[in-house]
Design a protein around this nucleic acid. Structure first.
Lengths: 142, 142
DNA sequence: CTATCAACATACAAGATTGGTAGGTTTTTT
DNA sequence: AAAAAACCTACCAATCTTGTATGTTGATAG
C-alpha cells in the first residue's frame, strides 16, 4: 500500500471543503458527519494541512476551515506528499534517503525511478477540482 | 512505500539467477555473497518463489535454485504481486478487500483505479530480461 | 466577563507490518 | 556416515497505522 488513510482522508477533506465552500469557515464537525471519519484523527491531519497553508483555520464560534486557494490550484500529489511524507514506491527513492551504496550497478533502480516518475506525474496531473462532484468533463483525465 | 525489501530482494534474486544461469543449480550462499542480503531472510522469500513455481529448488550438494523459465517470461509485476501480496496503491483496491460502502459516490476512487492500472501495467511491461545487465537496447522501456 | 465553540497540542495504545534472527528438519550427493 | 543445501517454524525488535484521551488556546456571543 502506497497511500494510507491519512493521505486519503486529507484528499477527501479537501474535496469536501471545495464542494461546500461559500466563503465561510466550515467546522470540522460538519465534515466529519458527511465523511464518516474520526474527528480526533482528522484534527491531526487538519493541523498539518493548516501549517502547510493548504487551508485556513479559524478558532471559536463561526470558526472552522476553508481552502486558501481555488480547487484547481491543489495537486493531489502535493497533498499526498505532505500527509504521507513521501509517495516514493521504494524507500531508496525517498527524499532524504541515504544513497544506496549499490545504486551504481543496481539493475532495478532505473525501473523504480521510472515508476516513481509515473506515479508522481499522474498524481500531480490531478487537481482537487478534477475530483469534485461537479467535474464531469468529457476530456477528464480520470 | 509500495514495495518493501521482500519484493525488491525477490527481483534481485531472480535477476541474479538469470545473469548466472548455466543449467546448474545455484546455491543461495552464492547469491547472498553477491547481493549482500541476509541468507536466513532470503530463505523465506525463495521458499515462496519455489512454491509458486518461479524457480526450481534442489536439495543437497550440487543443489540450489535456478529459473524454471526464460528471463523474458517473468514479469516484474507478477513477482511483486506474489511476494508483496498486493501492489495496489490503496487498501480499498486490494484483491479480496471488502468493498467500501462509500465506493459508489467516492470522489477519489476513479483516481485510485487509474493509478492502480498505471502501476500494474508498467510493472507488467518489465521482464527479468529487461533488468539484466546484458539488456541495453536502444528502445529500452527503462 | 463568562460560557461556548472550535482549532490546536500532546500523550498513549492496540494491532499490523517490516526486516530480520534462531534453531532445527529433510533431502540429496559424496 | 558426513556434508551440503533447501525447507520449516517460531520468535523478536522496531516502526507504522489508525486511531483515543485529555487537555489548552483563541475567538465569539450574551
Amino acid at each position: 500500500m502506497l497511500i494510507s488513510t491519512k493521505g486519503r482522508y486529507a484528499l477527501r477533506v479537501m474535496i469536501d471543503l471545495a464542494e461546500h465552500q461559500n466563503g465561510d469557515f466550515i467546522p470540522l464537525r460538519e465534515i466529519v458527519e458527511r465523511q464518516g471519519i474520526s474527528q480526533k484523527y482528522l484534527e491531526g491531519i487538519m493541523s498539518q494541512l493548516s501549517r502547510a497553508g493548504f487551508v485556513d483555520g479559524a478558532h471559536g464560534k463561526g470558526g472552522g476551515y476553508r481552502l486558501s486557494a481555488a480547487p484547481d490550484q491543489y495537486r493531489a500529489g502535493d497533498i499526498l506528499r505532505l500527509t504521507e511524507g513521501s509517495i516514493a514506491p521504494v524507500t531508496c527513492l525517498e527524499c532524504g534517503a541515504r544513497p544506496c551504496e549499490r545504486a551504481d550497478d543496481c539493475r532495478t533502480r532505473p525501473m523504480w525511478t521510472k515508476l516513481d516518475q509515473l506515479i508522481g506525474d499522474f498524481l500531480d496531473s490531478v487537481t482537487i477540482a478534477d475530483l469534485m462532484e461537479s467535474s464531469h468533463a468529457e476530456d477528464s483525465i480520470l
